[in-house]
């Protein structure tokens, strides 16, 4: 028990940073998949590129907001 307490003392800083790191994992993977698939689609069918790009930015908005909520939560729940 005392070991755990000592370890907790040794680590200083803000837990929010770790929380934000965790919150960024999922959206990071999601963005990677989305952008990769869009590029794949553009390469297969270059004439569909404008439509794919618009849809990609739309998807980006929805994925990105998760990471941003993680950032805001760090400031809110201090």
């Amino acid at each position: 028990m005392s070991n755990i307490l000592a370890a907790a003392d040794a680590v200083s800083g803000n837990l929010n940073a770790i929380g934000y790191g965790l919150a960024a994992i999922g959206p990071g993977i999601g963005l990677g998949i989305m952008v990769g698939k869009t590029i794949e689609g553009m390469a297969r069918q270059p004439e569909a590129a404008p439509m794919l790009r618009t849809t990609m930015f739309l998807g980006l908005a929805f994925i990105e907001v998760l990471a941003l909520i993680g950032l805001v939560a760090g400031f809110l729940f201090q």
Binding site: A61, F62, E64, V65, L68, I69, L71, V72
Partner: peptide
């Protein structure tokens, strides 16, 4: 989400 996306992006 519309509000938060703009806010958090510019804040960050």
């Amino acid at each position: 989400s519309l509000m938060l996306r703009l806010l958090a992006n510019m804040m960050a």
